[in-house]
Structure formats: C-alpha cells, structure tokens
C-alpha cells in the first residue's frame, strides 16, 4: 500500500513560560511525518515533549516556530497567510474584496473548529474528563458538539461503546460509579464516537493491569483496521510499541532523534540505548540467539512470534535450537 502523509510537522518548536525565569523548551526543531492508515508510536521518556507534541496536532497549543499540516493544510493558518492566495480561487473570485475577506475568515474559523473533530485526542488519564450524569450522555458530548442529528448521535454512541467494550447496561449509570478501567474505556469511547480521521492516544494503557492493557491495545488496532484512520499512540513502553505500531518516532530531550518503520527504528540499538531506551526484551533475546548461531529472522517483536518460530526450528532439527547451549 502506498504511504501517504496525514500529518506533517515542519521544524516545530515549543516553549513553556516564554519570557519568565521558568522558561523551558519542550520541543526543539522537530520535523515529523505521520502516515495515514497506520499506527504510529511516539516513544520517549517523561518530559521528552511527547504530550506537548500531541497538543499541537489538534490546535490546542500553537507552535512557537514551525508549521503543522493536516492533509497539507497548515492548521494554524491566519488570515494574512492565505488572503491573497485564496482570493483567486473560484469561490471567492466573484466576491467584493471585503466580502471575500469575510468569507475567507469564516472558512478559516470553520476549519479551526473542525480540527478537534478531525484529530481526536485522548489525553493521559482521560477518565478525569468524565462529567455527565450518565455514561451515555458523556460519550454523546463530542458528537453533540459536532452538531449531529439525534439519530446519528445515538448510533455513534452505541457503536463506540460496543467497540471499546463499554457494556450496554453501563450506559445509564453515572460515570462516577464505574471503576478506573471502565472509566478509561468510556473516555476513549467519547473520543472514538466523533469518528476522527486521526486518533491520538496519550499513554492509553497507563495504570491498567496487563490484561486490560492487551485488551485495550487490541481494540485500538481493530479500530484502526476498521476505520482506516491514522492512529498515534504515545507511550514509553517499548514492548507495547514494538507489538502494535507500524511506524515509530523517538523523542529525547525535546528533540526527535529517530523516525521510520518499526524495523528501521529498532535496528538502531545503540542510539536507543544512548538515550536510555531499550529495544524490546524479546528482540534483544533473539539478537543474542542469532549471535550464537541460531537461525532466526532478526526482527521479532512479540513473544508469541518468537515461540512460534522456535517451535518450527525445533520440529525441523529435532533438538533444542539453542545451538547446543542448554
């Protein structure tokens, strides 16, 4: 399948508390391309600028420098940037200068407003955003803000609820009565119900138990396949990233240090270790086995896959494939 850029960041910088004694650079000259129709993982330590970058993608924060493009449109466009260029477009050409200016201004505002529906952002610990009387109403909050019809809202709420594993009988309960993991699912459903073209999840599995984690990631993967949207997952867990992401970007100290396909990124073992990130344990293990002469492909990211391949090898040779080592 052909690779297409969904979101492009060009030399983006971001500074917190500019001009105060607490000034801090959160992003420093970051250029990143995020593909359509795949899962992109963004990895980095706490404070590496991951969450800041996510807030830039739907216009919640504006970059100090640089541009953010969604499908080629600069999301922070202001009137003066495009006035002359758009003026020549057929839909504005027939208008008077003043009317055209007004129409273009309205169009920019409309796109700005649309942005948060096109790029759905699930924040860290999203369960804190629940507020409605019932789970149903809370999931419906986003679609309602989009101005959809009641029937459409209803079908979207039920669809998103079913998708994230929110059970039908929870829908009429108060979100404050649910457990932490249940609330998390409701919060994610609330964003999925807007059917965004880009779904951004900031540490979606933080604080969940291993079972809940796997379940959640599998649901996200299924969502991506079904909707063919671009999904961005922010995490500091290499294991999760390796297992579920197609492409990976690595941030360290406010800078982007690596980006590319999962295979490409994890082949830079040294660089990753330099910034204090490890390649997944199972990949590491397979590397060591290969070094000892076990014939295995290099890029293995899940334990299941490794076990499967080792079994095959075992069946072929009839002995332990570990090159004689016990």
């Amino acid at each position: 399948m052909e690779r297409r850029d969904k979101i492009v960041l060009e030399h983006v910088s971001f500074v917190y508390g500019a001009g105060t004694p607490f000034e801090q650079k959160a992003l420093d000259d970051v250029s990143l391309r995020i593909s359509a129709n795949c899962i992109t993982g963004v990895i980095g330590h706490t404070g590496s600028g991951k969450s800041t970058m996510m807030n830039l993608l739907n216009g919640l924060a504006k970059p100090a420098e640089g541009k953010v493009y969604l499908d080629g449109y600069d999301i922070n466009t202001v009137l003066s940037d495009v006035l002359e260029e758009w003026r020549t477009r057929p839909e504005y050409a027939s208008l008077s200068a003043r009317a055209a200016k007004k129409a273009i201004k309205a169009e920019i505002a409309r796109r700005q407003r649309e942005l948060c529906f096109r790029v759905g952002l699930v924040m860290q610990y999203p369960e804190y955003q629940l507020f409605e009387e019932s789970v149903y109403q809370d999931i419906a909050y986003g679609p309602k803000n989009m101005g959809l019809s009641p029937q459409e809202i209803d079908s979207r709420v039920r669809e998103a609820a079913a998708f994230t594993g929110v059970e039908a009988d929870w829908l009429n309960r108060s979100p404050f009565d649910l457990s932490g993991g249940q609330k998390r699912r409701v919060a994610i459903a609330g964003v999925m119900a807007m059917k965004p073209e880009v779904l951004v999840l900031d540490e979606p599995a933080a604080g969940l138990d291993p079972h809940g984690r796997t379940q959640l990631f599998e649901k996200i993967c299924a969502y991506q396949k079904q909707t063919a949207s671009a999904v961005i997952i922010v995490s500091h867990s290499m294991e999760d990233m390796a297992q579920y992401c197609d492409e990976v970007a690595v941030l360290s100290g406010a800078r982007l240090i690596l980006q590319g396909s999962r295979e490409e990124v994890f082949s830079h073992t040294d660089l990753l270790e330099q910034v204090g990130l490890d390649i997944p344990q199972i990949t590491q293990l397979v590397r060591l086995l290969r070094a000892r002469g076990v014939e295995l492909p290099e890029n293995i990211y899940t334990v299941d896959r490794a076990v499967e391949l080792l079994r095959e090898r075992f069946a072929e040779t009839g002995r332990c494939p570990a090159g004689g080592a016990k």
Partner: peptide, 10 residues
C-alpha cells in the same frame, strides 16, 4: 488539563 480535554471533544 480538563479544559484541554473538553476542548478536544469540541
């Protein structure tokens, strides 16, 4: 944080 989360939902 909460304002941002709700802004993200429109």
């Amino acid at each position: 944080k909460i304002m941002n989360a709700q802004k993200a939902r429109g």
